[in-house]
Design a protein around this nucleic acid. Sequence first.
DNA 1: CAGACGTGGAA
DNA 2: TTTCCAAGTCT
Length: 358
Amino acid sequence: MPCKPDGPTDLILNWYQKNKRDLPWRNTQDAYAIWVSEIMLQQTRVDTVIPYYKQFMSRFPDAAALAAASEDEVLPAWKGLGYYSRARNLHRAARILIDKYGGKFPRILKEALLLPGIGEYSAGAVLSIAYDLPVPAVDGNVLRVISRLNGLRQDIARNTTRKTVAQIVAGIMPADRAGDFTQALMELGALICIPLSPRCDACPVSSLCCAFRDGSQGEIPVKTGQKAALEISVHAALIRKGGRILMEHRQDQSLLSRMWGLPVLLDPPEDMSEIPAVFMQKYGLALLPGPCLGQCRHVFSHQIWNIRVYSHILHTKGADVIRGTGNTLRWVTREETEGLAIPAAFQKMLALTAGQDG
DNA sequence: CAGACGTGGAA
DNA sequence: TTTCCAAGTCT
């Protein structure tokens, strides 16, 4: 049966003050800087984010700089980080800030929630951390910490659980130190109240914790299992001409949308003789597959690509830019690929073909 | 609500 | 190698 802890607030705040990590986004109160960090940190580890964050803030130091940039300049700064809609939404939202909010992140919760890429968590995080407004920010850490503290056994994947936890956080959030408390709760979840083998011996609120008392740390939080990713066979085309490679700007696809990659066929026909017809239909290109240059595997969150990269001979007479069905193809040099937003999946494929340009 | 949406690190 | 992720959002 759930129990209500009495006064974890000060214990958590004091612990945070002594144990918080020195992170780049903790040396500022600038709402833009904090906003960028929150977006980058979504489903992404701190260690992974740090170098991207520093580079991004240097390149786009404020909302005006980001809004003034084109998407072709913003996406390369995000390449390799994953979840690229975050970058597109951040960019769009920066333009909305400039157009409608005087370049400042809104202080009103409902206005913040209207911005693309800002959900309940991020709105609460920016408002509390940047503006010290007492708005709860419930992320995976907070879900875990509060669930264990209160002995909550509701599935944390459910929205109703998130709301319950937000209520509990609102009830113990100090009005004068909202930002510190939001970060303290997440820091506790990141360093002490970790998913596996929590360090309860070092926890400032173990004496108040229902899960610790019951020894149920391993059972809480309750989380529904994820489905196995679908395995897909992928035929990737390396098409060369005069030291250049034909790259595709993935305009109309949902996965890796508006990123650059080699032309690919998902679930290609097993009979290689049928490949040219499929390329003609998808890209309007007359291609003849040649030798396989290598293979690799790339795991996305919801699907797995088993990739073979083939050299191809192009029979289509070529303009520099060839328009396929909804996608743009462009001849680029190896050097030029570095400035393009090419996600990890396609970086792997290109690595397989390095030195194959002659 | 369930599923799409990336990636690399840890156990 | 396999499993589970890590400071979520959108549809």
